[in-house]
Nucleic acid binder design. Structure first.
Length: 314
DNA sequence: AAGTACATCAACCGCACGCAT
DNA sequence: GATGCGTGCGGTTGATGTACT
C-alpha cells in the first residue's frame, strides 16, 4: 500500500519564506519546542507543509547557524570527511558546528568540487558508502521501552543473523580485495583503526546507553573482519566523570586518525577497494559522530582546540 | 540599457527508517 | 507481521542575483 503524502498539498504556500512566516515559525518553536512538525504549521498559523517548516527551521532559523563564507579549516575538514564518508552530509555537518548539511552540500557542489577539479583532485563518488547508509537510532521514550522489549529481543536476534551473513560476504570480498594493487593503502589505514579498536568500541553512560547495543554488535562484526578481538564493554557503575574522560580519550584517538595525514588514505585512493575496510571505517566514524553529538556539551574546550572554533560557535 | 549565461543557495521531492498500532 | 505515521536524509530543482556581451 502506498504512502500518503506528508501533508495535503492544496492551499499550501511554496517557495521562499517571508519574514512574517519566519517570525510565526520562530515564535512557535521558541514556545513549544521542535515537536510535531506535521501539526506545527496549523498550530502556528502557517500555510506550509510540516516538512517545509522543519527545513526552514533547521537550515535557516535555528539559533547558532553560521552564515557566510567557510573558513579554510572548515574547507579542509569537509574535504577530508568527504574522502572518508562520501556524501553523508548530515554526518559531516555534525562535525562542523554551526553548519547545516544543506549548507555543506551546497558549498561542496558549488565551490569545493570546482576547486578540487581545477587542482586535478576530483574525488570519486562514494556510492558504496551511501548504499550502507544508516541513520542513528532515535531514543525511545520510557513508556514505549517496556512494550517494545520483546520486539527488541526478536529484532536483536534478527540483526545478529544479518551481521553474521554480512561477515561471511565481507570476508569473501576481503580476499579479493587483498589482491588489488592498492591493498597496502587501505590495509594500513584499517590496521591503524583496528589497533585502536579497543579504545573506541564500547562505553556506557546515561546518555550513551542507546548506543551500547549497536556499538557492541558492530564492533563484534568489524573486529572479526580485521582479526581484532579486543572488544570490551565497560558496564554501569562508572561515574559520569570517568565516562566523560573515556569518551574524551576516544575522540582524541579518532581525531588523530582523522587529522593525521599519515593515517588518512592517500588522495589518489579515495575509493576504498575493500568493502570490509570501508564498512569498518564507516562504523568507526558513525560511532565517533554519535559520541560527538551526544556529548558535545562536555567537549567544548576540546572542539575549540581541535579546529579553532570559539565556544560561542558551539 | 537589454539580453543572455552562469552561479548560488533556499527549498522541494522522494525515499528509507524507526516506532506505534 | 503488516501497515501507517512522523521524521530525517540526500539528490535535485528553480528562483534570484551577478557577470558578461
Amino acid at each position: 500500500m502506498g504512502r500518503k503524502p506528508c501533508c495535503s498539498k492544496e492551499g499550501l504556500r511554496k517557495g521562499t519564506w517571508t519574514a512574517k512566516e519566519d517570525k510565526l515559525l520562530t515564535d512557535y518553536i521558541k514556545e513549544h519546542g521542535e515537536v510535531g512538525w506535521r501539526s506545527l504549521p496549523i498550530k502556528a498559523g502557517l500555510l506550509r507543509c510540516g516538512k517545509s517548516c522543519r527545513l526552514r527551521w533547521v537550515n535557516y532559523l535555528k539559533p547558532g547557524i553560521k552564515r557566510g563564507n567557510f573558513t579554510p579549516e572548515e574547507e579542509d575538514l569537509i574535504i577530508r570527511l568527504y574522502n572518508l564518508l562520501g556524501s553523508r552530509w548530515s554526518l559531516i555537518a555534525g562535525r562542523i558546528p554551526g553548519r547545516t548539511d544543506n549548507d555543506i552540500k551546497n558549498y561542496w557542489n558549488t565551490h569545493l568540487l570546482k576547486k578540487l577539479k581545477s587542482q586535478g583532485l576530483e574525488p570519486k563518488r562514494h556510492k558504496s558508502l551511501a548504499k550502507h547508509m544508516r541513520r542513528p537510532k532515535h531514543k525511545a521514550n520510557v513508556s514505549s521501552q517496556n512494550n517494545q522489549k520483546s520486539n527488541k529481543e526478536k529484532k536483536k536476534r534478527k540483526k545478529q543473523v544479518k551481521i553474521e551473513k554480512n561477515c561471511n560476504i565481507i570476508e569473501d570480498k576481503e580476499q579479493v580485495a587483498k589482491k588489488t594493487e592498492n591493498q597496502w593503502h587501505t590495509q594500513d589505514f584499517a590496521q591503524k583503526i583496528s589497533a585502536n579498536n579497543h579504545d573506541i568500541t564500547c562505553s556506557s553512560s546515561s546518555n550513551t546507553a542507546t548506543l551500547q547495543d549497536g556499538i557492541s554488535s558492530r564492533a563484534a562484526s568489524t573486529s572479526e573482519v580485521v582479526n581484532c578481538n579486543n572488544v570490551h564493554c565497560s558496564s554501569s557503575g562508572q561515574n559520569v566523570e570517568e565516562n566523560d574522560n573515556e569518551i574524551y580519550e576516544k575522540l582524541q584517538v579518532i581525531d588523530e586518525l582523522l587529522l593525521n595525514d599519515n593515517c588518512l588514505p592517500p588522495t589518489e585512493c579515495t575509493e576504498f577497494n575493500s568493502e570490509s575496510q570501508m564498512l569498518l571505517m564507516e562504523n568507526v566514524y558513525e560511532e565517533y559522530f554519535q559520541l560527538v553529538s551526544e556529548n558535545s556539551y562536555h567537549f567544548q574546550d576540546y572542539a575549540h582546540s581541535f579546529v579553532g572554533f570559539s565556544q560561542d560557535d558551539l
